[in-house]
Structures are given as structure tokens and as C-alpha cells.
């Protein structure tokens, strides 16, 4: 795993993973809520870079639009509408934090062991449709995945109407 030559992809991978992991760790350590959201936006952009490395350009742009754009802004609005300049109060018990940390590290240990132990078989053929990625995805979306695509559109409509109804001010209660 660690014995690979220094190709351009590898260097870019190192840079993006550094952005992703440092953003996530900063998110855990910051005390101001808005700073946490901004560092998570960095994580989302790093993941978009990873998608470009994995020849999923369309997904990379979707990631930037939806995660780094829409969801970050939505969360910032959520913070604005709940409490301004809120600081993360330190009152969760130390025991709770240690237990959560041990749980997360144990899960990572299991995943690490599983990934190292697994023999990934060699590829049968390289990814086709890597160039013209957006066109290939569009073709698939309107041939093989029409039904899920339409279902997702219905689900999004229902979810957003539901969100509006939930967040609406209740009439003079």
C-alpha cells in the first residue's frame, strides 16, 4: 500500500487527503460554530478534488455545488436562525468524550484491519466513459435509471415542501 511511485496522481492525492483530514480535525477542535462550518466546506472541496482524481468530473462539480455551496450555506442559515455567535460549551462529561473516542478509534481499527487484509482482485477492464463523463452519466440517467431518477425528483419535492411546512411560523399560538 505504501510502496507506490510518486506519480502526479499520488501527489495530488496526498494534497487532497491532507486538506480533507486537517479540515475534519479542525472541525472537531474549533470552538466557534461558524468556524466549524467553514472548515467543513474545505473538507467538501477536498472531496471534490478527489472525485476529479477518480475521473468523476460531473460528480466533482455536483459536490461543489451541493455540498460546498448549498449545504454549507443552509447550515450557516441554520446557525443564524438559532443562536448567533454560539460557542460550543464544554459541559459534556469527560467520560462521554473518552468513550466516544474509544468507539471511533475501535471502528477505525476494524476498518484498517479489514482494508489491509482484503486482496482486491485485478481490474477486468478500465473505467470506460471516463472522457465525456457528464454525457455518459446523462445517458445512463435517462436509460437505465429513469425510474429511480423520477422517484428522487418526487422525493425532493416532498422533502422540501415538508421542510417549508415544518419551519413555517405557527399562526398565533
Amino acid at each position: 500500500m505504501f510502496n507506490m511511485d510518486w506519480t502526479g496522481e499520488y501527489v495530488a492525492f496526498i494534497v487532497f487527503s491532507a486538506v480533507i483530514i486537517s479540515g475534519a480535525v479542525f472541525m472537531i477542535n474549533f470552538t466557534k460554530v461558524v468556524h466549524m462550518v467553514v472548515s467543513l466546506a474545505a473538507v467538501f472541496i477536498g472531496i471534490a478534488g478527489m472525485f476529479v482524481l477518480l475521473q468523476a468530473e460531473f460528480l466533482a462539480f455536483v459536490q461543489v455545488l451541493i455540498y460546498a455551496g448549498a449545504i454549507s450555506i443552509l447550515m450557516i442559515f441554520g446557525i443564524m436562525m438559532t443562536k448567533h455567535g454560539d460557542r460550543e460549551a464544554e459541559s459534556k462529561s469527560r467520560l462521554h468524550k473518552i468513550a466516544a473516542g474509544i468507539g471511533a478509534i475501535a471502528l477505525f481499527g476494524i476498518l484498517f484491519y479489514a482494508i489491509r487484509q482484503t486482496e482486491f482482485p485485478a481490474q477486468e477492464q478500465p473505467l470506460h466513459g471516463a472522457e465525456d463523463n457528464a454525457m455518459e452519466i446523462g445517458k445512463l440517467l435517462f436509460t437505465g435509471y429513469v425510474v429511480p431518477f423520477e422517484l428522487v425528483s418526487v422525493l425532493l419535492t416532498v422533502a422540501f415542501i415538508g421542510a417549508i411546512v415544518l419551519a413555517k411560523k405557527e399562526a398565533n399560538e
Binding site: S17, I20, I21, A24, V25, M27, I28, V33, M36, V37, V43, M50, M75, G78, I79, T82, D86, E88, A89, S91, K92, H96, K97, A100, G101, G103, A104, I105, L107, F108, L111, F112, I115
Partner: peptide, 21 residues
């Protein structure tokens, strides 16, 4: 990288107090 990210997310979801976070 995905495993590390998942574990950090899990830790944050368990420890953080602000519901938005």
C-alpha cells in the same frame, strides 16, 4: 481516507453538543 473521515464524523456526531454541527 474514507475510513478516517467516517470515524472523525462519527466522533463528532457523538461528542458535539450543537445540533447543527
Amino acid at each position: 481516507v474514507a475510513a478516517i473521515l467516517f470515524c472523525i464524523g462519527l466522533y463528532g456526531a457523538l461528542v458535539k453538543k450543537n445540533a447543527v454541527i
